[in-house]
């Protein structure tokens, strides 16, 4: 227990120290007057902006989070089924896989305005964009995970009379969990950014809209506050994913410890 505490401090201490240093640097740059206030608000200004506007920000954050979660949910479902079908039918994989890869060369920023044009100014175009962002890493990583099961494990299952569904449930699914969670960790932060980005382009609610408004009002202190809020949300979601992963894959802890011993 003590060892665990120490390793956590060991991991956290350096970045926290660096962060505090940067914060100090920022503070003095503003306090000394070497950077004009309208270009870079001081940490205190940003804090004040946050305190005065936090209720409004949270209301907008609720909308952005809703878009993110709904988009993540459907992105994962669609990605999962695509991966399952590609894993099961070689022909589907041959047809779909190259298309999915090519589709990723289309920049998100480019389709966002189209989605707004087609789907209007409500939540739908934002959710669809998040789905588009999440779908790709999830489906590709799950496909890779399903494929990572070796032939002898499948032989073992078959020798015990397992059918296709049972092999999927008992072997393929758990083998793919690690792949799934590593891509989910990336996906959650992209999903938040995607939601915010599509809010820039239209609508009345969400952190992206809030950003556009404070930018038009030249309230850069509020702008900074909302940027920080967005990164905090992303960090929390990444942490939550890691937490879920630990809960869903209790064997990883043991296997990791074992791997360390063997090195």
């Amino acid at each position: 227990m003590k060892g665990k505490l120490r390793s956590t401090t060991d991991k956290l201490l350096p970045p926290v120290v660096l962060l505090l240093l940067l914060l100090g640097l920022w503070y003095f740059a503003c306090a000394s007057g070497s950077v004009p206030k309208f270009m870079l608000p001081s940490p205190a200004d940003v804090w004040n902006a946050f305190v005065s506007d936090w209720q409004l920000m949270l209301r907008h954050a609720r909308v952005t989070l809703a878009e993110t979660f709904i988009g993540l949910f459907f992105g994962i479902i669609i990605g999962f089924f695509t991966a399952v079908v590609m894993d099961r039918f070689r022909i589907v994989r041959k047809l779909l896989y190259p298309l999915i890869i090519i589709s990723q060369t289309i920049p998100t920023v480019a389709i966002a305005p189209l989605l707004v044009l087609w789907l209007g100014y409500q939540m739908l175009p934002k959710i669809v964009l998040v789905i588009c962002i999440v779908f790709f890493p999830i489906s590709i990583s799950l496909l890779e995970g399903f494929g990572s099961v070796d032939a002898d494990t499948v032989n073992l299952m078959r020798s015990m009379g397992a059918g296709r569904l049972q092999i999927f449930r008992y072997v393929k699914m758990p083998s793919a969990l690690g792949h799934f969670f590593s891509s989910l960790k990336i996906s959650v932060s992209y999903a938040v950014v995607g939601a915010v980005l599509s809010e820039w382009l239209g609508g009345t609610e969400g952190l992206g809209c809030y950003m556009t408004r404070v930018r038009k009002a030249f309230s850069y202190d509020k702008m900074f506050a909302v940027i920080i809020l967005i990164s905090v949300i992303s960090l929390l979601l990444i942490w939550l994913t890691g937490f879920l992963q630990k809960k869903c894959m209790p064997w990883e802890k043991v296997n990791q410890a074992r791997r360390k011993e063997n090195v």
């Binding site: 002898d152 494990t153 073992l156 020798s159 015990m160 072997v171 758990p174």
Partner: peptide, 19 residues
């Protein structure tokens, strides 16, 4: 026909994610 005979494969093949 598989699933009729008890078969222990060459490697122990214990699934790492099951107790």
């Amino acid at each position: 026909q598989s699933g009729k005979i008890s078969y222990m494969l060459q490697k122990d093949m214990l699934l790492p994610f099951r107790t």
